[in-house]
Nucleic acid binder design. Sequence first.
RNA 1: GUGACCGUAGCUCAGGCGGUUAGAGCGCCAGGUUGUGGCCCUGGAGGUCGGGGGUUCAAGUCCCCUCGGUCACCCCA
Length: 433
Amino acid sequence: MASTFKTIEGTFDVLPGAAVAVHRVEAWQEVERGIRAVMHRFAFEEIRTPILEPTALIARGIGQLTDIVSKEMFSFERGRTSYVLRPEMTAPVVRAYLQHHLSQRPGAARLCYLGPCFRAERPQRGRYRQFHQFGAEILGVTDSRADAEIILVMMAIYEELGVTGTDLRINTLGDEHSRPRYRQALQAYLEQFKGDLSPISQERLARNPLRILDTKVANERELLQGAPKLPDYVDKHSRAHYEALKGWLDDANVRYTEDPFLVRGLDYYTRTAFELEHAKIGAQSALAGGGRYDLLASAIGSRHPVPAVGFAAGLERLFLALDAAGVTLPGRQPVDVWVVAMGPDAERQAFSLVQACRRAGLRTGSDWSGRSLKAQMRLANRAAASYVVILGERELSSGQVQIRQMRTGMQTAAPMNTIVTYLQSQQNASAIT
RNA sequence: GUGACCGUAGCUCAGGCGGUUAGAGCGCCAGGUUGUGGCCCUGGAGGUCGGGGGUUCAAGUCCCCUCGGUCACCCCA
């Protein structure tokens, strides 16, 4: 209770050296580095968009009927404008693509992102109000190889980081003509059993019946056994697209399961839909999801349709999966050098020496509280310093400072002006091994 | 938004049916003689017992409210 204020519900600080990886900066840095490395290798380029977007972009992009828009947005008015803290990144990326006419650049746009998103849900394991998404989008390509590539980068990231036990499920939702036909058929079927449906499903029946497909209620799942099947309604072209996608995935040796009940919570998906799940990370088992969204650009005002496909993944859930896989992530980073000084004259020299070390590229620490030698040595040890340079009255008068290699305890004297080059050579030597 | 469980030092936790100055381990700080870390020993700092109200002679311990955490529903990343 040192402070009156604390992080608000569903948010958390990320600190150096925290015990739990998801709360530790060094772990985040490592994971982010890994994600970006894979994205880079797949020739995606990073895009950064504002956290604040116009509410209408999200509402029209994701769909008014979705849970995200209808009840999970952090939005507020200011002047005559309504703003949202972005709940996801796909709509903003497409907005940027249209705004900056990225279609005019040569070839397809291959964009990736990583950053905070916000949803006003009740927090629980793997679910926060401020959370982080990373993902990739390919805009301007109709071919199913784009769908396949999106799935491939996604899988590569988890594989690279050492996540095991994932389960990829895929489906096709059909196009803008066949999907409504199926919707009607499903609606008509479920209407007969309306009384047996849960209140939520009853609500959905009228507005968004496809969402009922992924219900967890046992008797509803039973009812769905006799329901019209989505694959039977999918149009010829979507069917072919889907078959081709499976072919590419097979060629790439990606394992997947087909799930005709897989639908997604965002309205903009057409044809391909997929989800990456993990069985051992709790109720929030979806690591990532995505699909094709050829209608989104038009929905947010583009005069020309933009074929597009992408995935989005949760960083916090990735941490859960990493933990389940037993992957260890880095903690506090050691320093190369720690400079110890005793007495005002030595402290003055030491201050300059510290800066000289840093200019030479050495990670260098020191303590300016005027502690005892013993205490300063202790700090050097805690900082996991490779070397300690000791400066006191004796060193000042002799011109020779002490250099101690902490691991071995070996200590030698050397002229003050040779220290930096000596430490540099030591660092280079250890870098090679 | 609904439900269940939980909330004591920086961290992990003890604190039988309410009763003297609230404890431990780890961590932190400082000593263990003259200028040296990690091990060990000694000492010290640090808590309005999440916050507010109530019951009582007396509450960390009981009741209510509130805030937060956790897990599940829901939803999705």
